[in-house]
């Protein structure tokens, strides 16, 4: 009798522990609206891609996927919301490389992306584009590389802020080329362009959407893109890797994350739905408008990619002495 009660207690405790997860059955999932947390303010790429994806997922799975902006602290606040959410598949996160850069760069990042989150799929890739001041004599990437090597310590490069992908790409370039270029951070990459036109800043790695208005009429010069293959937004430009800096690969990827304890069947179901959503012709077209190409990976591949990116950028941040007291 007492034993039975004790066992009942143990079972109850176990049920309570695994409760939230066990109730979320993969067969019935999703049976209520799903939150898709976007850790940035409306109007940016993550916001647009998130909304497009949310709409497609709603069509795939028959429940509304509601995009919700949770901006703040460079994406840390929104990411933490999902890291702490119930692992039932009803809270998703769409995030860019800042999710793995912030833990190295910032103090007191509340989440541990390896322990608290896991990848559903890396949904897209988007290279940066190297733009230079039109006043520079260099007209091609090879010439620019030679110019940067010949003028150590003299060049300035703009970025969208400390620890952003444009900053780290610039740092990586500067180190690989031995250019010792000075980093000039701006609040968002757009603000750097007037100074680049005036040759106060000589180059920058810009997002494609940021650069397009200025490269269309050659007010700044676009020289190369940073992916492993040429970008559809700049089909005529070579990649940095092909044009002289082997292995140079900077990707502004986006990935869908869920809390780490989310049951595998739900992750698998989501992964399938995401794959279908980004394969859709309308999605491809919408992504292309902001210079983003659909990618799509399995959860395992996605986790491996994100872990590798973490190591890569951690090394750049450490070697470049970017983290300041």
């Amino acid at each position: 009798m007492t034993r039975a009660i004790r066992w009942a207690g143990v079972v109850a405790c176990l049920a309570a522990l695994i409760g939230p997860a066990s109730f979320a059955s993969a067969q019935t999932y999703p049976d209520k609206p799903v939150r898709l947390v976007l850790p940035y303010a409306p109007g940016g790429i993550v916001d647009f891609i998130g909304r497009t994806l949310g709409q497609r997922l709603s069509e795939e799975l028959g429940q509304p996927f509601v995009a919700e902006n949770k901006p703040g602290a460079g994406g840390i606040l929104g990411t933490d919301v999902v890291a702490q959410a119930a692992p039932d598949g009803y809270t998703l996160l769409l995030m860019d490389p800042a999710i793995i850069i912030n833990p190295t760069l910032q103090e007191n990042v509340p989440y541990d992306f390896k322990k608290d989150l896991k990848v559903v799929s890396v949904i897209s890739s988007s290279p940066l584009v190297l733009v230079t001041s039109p006043a520079l004599p260099a007209k091609t990437f090879a010439e620019f590389l030679a110019y940067a090597k010949a003028n150590p310590g003299k060049l300035n490069y703009g970025s969208a802020g400390i620890g952003t992908t444009p900053h780290l790409a610039g740092e990586l370039f500067s180190a690989r080329a031995g250019a010792k270029a000075m980093h000039i951070p701006y609040r968002g990459i757009a603000a750097a362009f007037p100074d680049m036109m005036a040759n106060k800043v000589q180059f920058a790695f810009s997002s494609i959407t940021g650069a397009k208005p200025f490269t269309n009429d050659n007010r700044v010069r676009a020289l190369a893109t940073t992916g492993t293959k040429p970008s559809s937004a700049y089909p005529d430009l070579p990649t940095v890797a092909a044009a002289g800096l082997e292995g140079f690969d900077v990707d502004l990827w986006l990935a869908v994350f869920v809390p780490a304890a989310t049951p595998e069947p739900i992750v698998a179901k989501l992964n399938k739905a995401v794959a279908a959503a980004i394969a859709d012709a309308k999605t491809v077209e919408a992504f292309a408008k902001v210079g983003v190409e659909p990618r799509g990976t399995t959860p395992a591949e996605g986790n491996a990619i994100v872990a590798a990116e973490f190591e890569k950028w951690r090394k750049v941040i450490k070697d470049g002495g970017i983290k300041q007291p």
Binding site: A41, F48, A190, F193, T209, A286
Partner: peptide, 22 residues
């Protein structure tokens, strides 16, 4: 110029780009 002078304008640039207007 494609140069946003405040956050509202930055959002409008975003809106234009999404419509395929640079």
């Amino acid at each position: 110029l494609g140069l946003p002078s405040n956050p509202t304008m930055a959002m409008m640039i975003g809106a234009l780009m999404i419509h395929g207007i640079t």
